[in-house]
Amino acid sequence: MDTDKIILELALNLSKDIYRDSLQPSVQTLGQELEQLVSALKIITLPFAAMGMSSDYLLARFGIFLSRSIQKVKQENRTPPHPSISVPILQNVQLVFDKENLCELYSNLLASASDKTKQSMIHPSFVTIISQLDPLDVLLLEQLRTAAMLPFMEVKSIPKDSASLSYSIVEPFCLIAGHEKDYENIAASLRNLQRLGLLQKSTAMVQANKLDTFQEIYNSAPFASTRNILEKMQREQLSLESTSITAIKGCFVLTVLGRKFLLSCLEPRP
């Protein structure tokens, strides 16, 4: 049986019934609507039995997920979500029911897609983007929601021959509380968020009283070996013949797509 077709029918039923004005947005009502679709959901969830998750367990999680998502939308703003958003959400969310922060992104996206005041900011790529995030990626996005920019430093080898390409010795790194020594994962997350089109580099724009932020980054463990080389070269007045090693300051900021993603998928702070 065509599983995608089943999910599409499920999403269309949800759009038609759960969002109907005459229905009350209660857990009971949502449960009744889900009960009518038990057979379809059990077929959808069959492939996950091998992962130790029963169809009954997943059905219950779907009920919680849908209830929580719809109740985030004011009743007067509720409208059916487009299947291009709701279908892939239902396909993907069951994979992360055990990962609360990722599941919450899907829930917020479904809520935004069901809110007539927010639908215009939704892009179909958002579901795919969530599926390519990990908890550390989400943490970095959370930082940008409040800080607007993330100061970073990187170290590059820049050839004196303009025809040659520069390359990173130390990839861009930001100081994140609890991850000050986690260079590999922070650098990988920053790279992933750029690849997904959510972040972009900008020139350093930091208030004067926060200029020491860059010095803190430079003094952190990931830069130790490069820092020692640069300090030795400066101290002994050494230089490299064909290249220069340069520490670069900058800030990561959200792209337009990134701002829309945060507004759609992260709940606004109270």
Rank of each mutant, 00 (worst) to 15 (best):
E33Q: 12
Y183L: 07
A11T: 05
K74L: 13
D2Y: 01
K118T: 01
I64F: 10
S15I: 00
K116T: 04
D134I: 10
Q71P: 03
L165K: 14
C103G: 09
S26W: 02
I229M: 09
D98S: 13
L23Y: 08
S162K: 12
P159S: 09
L136P: 05
Q194C: 15
Q94H: 13
I130L: 07
M121R: 13
Y57Q: 13
F126S: 03
I158V: 15
D21I: 11
E231A: 11
F126C: 03
L58R: 12
M233T: 00
F173Q: 07
K160V: 08
A221F: 03
K232W: 00
N219S: 12
T29D: 02
I169N: 07
F214A: 04
D182K: 11
K260I: 00
H82S: 11
I158H: 05
L140A: 05
E216P: 00
A163N: 14
L263H: 08
S55I: 07
A177I: 12
V138T: 09
L34T: 01
L110F: 07
Q200V: 07
S114V: 02
S242V: 00
D161Q: 11
Q24N: 09
L190Y: 09
E171Q: 14
Q119K: 13
D4K: 13
E241V: 05
D212A: 07
D137L: 04
V170Y: 00
E100D: 14
T117K: 15
P270A: 09
L95E: 03
C251R: 04
Y106V: 01
E100S: 14
R68E: 14
L102N: 03
A60H: 12
Q207Y: 07
S131H: 03
V206I: 15
P81S: 08
I70N: 01
N209F: 06
V253F: 00
L257E: 10
L30V: 15
L58M: 14
G258D: 08
M51I: 06
D2H: 12
Q75L: 13
I158S: 04
F252R: 04
A204F: 05
Q237G: 00
Q194P: 01
L12Q: 08
L23E: 08
N219L: 10
S84H: 07
I44A: 06
R61M: 15
V206D: 02
D21H: 10
F97H: 09
L193S: 08
L150G: 06
S244F: 00
V127F: 02
P172F: 05
A147G: 03
P88K: 06
R145F: 06
Q237M: 03
E236T: 02
I186Q: 04
N108G: 02
S114D: 01
T146F: 15
L240G: 00
I245Q: 04
H179Q: 12
F97E: 04
D115S: 01
S84R: 12
Q207E: 14
D4T: 10
Q194D: 03
C103R: 15
Q32L: 15
H123L: 13
